[in-house]
Design a protein around this nucleic acid. Structure first.
Lengths: 256, 256
DNA sequence: AATATACTGTGTATGCAATATACTGTTTAT
DNA sequence: ATAAACAGTATATTGCATACACAGTATATT
């Protein structure tokens, strides 16, 4: 039965669900998909996604390049499995009395953590809606957090899309900054701080009437001491999203 | 003076601002940066980002690969300039009496349009906060839409980050679906619809207690006729964000 | 006017990538 | 016993970005 299901799914996805047929004859396998993916993740963690080549991964396990193709049909599939592997995150046990708002906050924090722990994560493009087990596990958890809320299924999915998008966008920003710092760059080569001196000559009041004052204040590159620090910056957006959801819940005619 | 500014900026960024020193001697140039970028964009529009190689772009203009390097120092810089080129979007003239909410809605719609018209746009990774002219022009416009709002500069920037993230995430989803359809796939190969039959056997009630009913209803893959169509799905999230902002404006102690 | 300089586009070469294909040897089903 | 299906390997193909050396050309300096 797994055979039919497998045929209908992209190879990488079928692999992630572990429903690929096991070989019946021939020599014993000396590697495993898990081993390969772990090796690839480890290389990416240390040296970035660009260092992950089939040759590099195979060599790190003591095999030749082509041996990997006995396990994983293409590099794209390997990337998918890497994404899936690090999406196996610790989701807190469902706290019974917890308010949905706090739960969804946690969801976004956990999702963002993946980007910080595996800076290469965001470098892999997403091809379509997530349909791998660990990704669905996160969706399942988020749906659990919204249990009992006065939202229909489509609305819940929209909320998750919204939160995931925000986690992705801000996770990548945080990653970019931390990556720059780790690379020895000054604290804000990527945040724009390094370039702000140069840019202040280019962002003129004539050409950018509204941006100009913001830029001069340093708020654009996040160097302003005005009020918000960089960390809180991301919280701000999240709280606005949650406010929006809450407002929708309250203002809704109490049907379904 | 441009010389000093140029030195402090990444090459591609300096090019985007047009502050790179013009050559004084030597033969006349037979190409221009604009021409090259246009050619690259045209190839990407027709055949995807993967088709954009230095060789391909040069050949399409009737020159050799290496000639491009006289204009643009690296492929990464070319990609940046491509991004910047298609970010030259039509932003509606500032309608005086328009409500900020409607203006910001327009902002997100325009930002999403870029992903639909240039499906490769989202395939180029973002390196850091945008600091190229057309990108800043969009930020400037959004700030204009928030003029007079009771938000400080940092808060306004956070709002723009929030909206841009949402535009990016949903723009890429729309793109993925349209791309799949254009590629001849059934109306929803990427949305998950094609796989939903197979997935329904994998998403069990035991393993995914909260996702299971949602999946069976078809809301996950967007095939449900429950209430929202796919298009409206994205509007829903946007309206929640705007609600959240509005709520924040109202609930704020009317300082600064 | 002479000449050095900075540039032009080109041709060639390097090194690395993904992966198709043909190979030898191994285990299991028949 | 033997054929089929597999394992890991070696080799080759194709395409990529880009370093470098070249011959010719326009300008700046003398």
């Amino acid at each position: 039965m797994d055979r039919e299901i497998e045929a209908k799914l992209p190879h990488g996805v079928a692999l992630s669900w572990g429903i690929v047929k096991q070989p019946q004859r021939g020599p014993k396998r000396e590697m495993s998909i898990e081993q390969i993916v772990d090796a690839a993740v480890s290389i990416a963690d240390k040296e970035g996604l660009a260092a992950v080549s089939m040759n590099r991964v195979a060599a790190s396990l003591g095999f030749t390049t082509m041996s990997l193709y006995r396990y994983i049909p293409s590099k794209d599939d390997l990337l998918l499995l890497m994404q899936e592997a690090v999406s196996h995150v610790d989701l807190p046990e469902k706290a019974e009395g917890e308010h949905w708002r706090e739960s969804l906050r946690k969801y976004v924090r956990v999702a963002m953590t993946v980007f910080r722990e595996h800076p290469w994560f965001g470098d892999i493009p997403i091809m379509g809606v997530p349909i791998t087990p660990n990704n669905l596990r996160m969706v399942d958890w988020a749906l659990g957090a919204m249990e009992g809320l006065c939202l229909n299924n489509s609305e819940k999915m929209s909320v998750i899309l919204l939160l995931s998008s925000y986690a992705r966008a801000t996770g990548m920003l945080v990653r970019d900054m931390e990556r720059a710092i780790r690379a020895g760059a000054s604290p804000g080569a990527v945040s724009g701080t390094d370039y702000s001196a140069a840019l202040k000559q280019l962002v003129t009041a004539e050409r950018f009437p509204h941006l100009h004052p913001v830029f001069m204040s340093g708020a654009y590159t996040g160097e302003s001491d005005e009020d918000l620090t960089i960390g809180n910056d991301f919280d701000f957006g999240l709280e606005r999203i949650l406010d929006g959801i809450e407002h929708y819940l309250n203002s809704k005619p109490s049907d379904n």
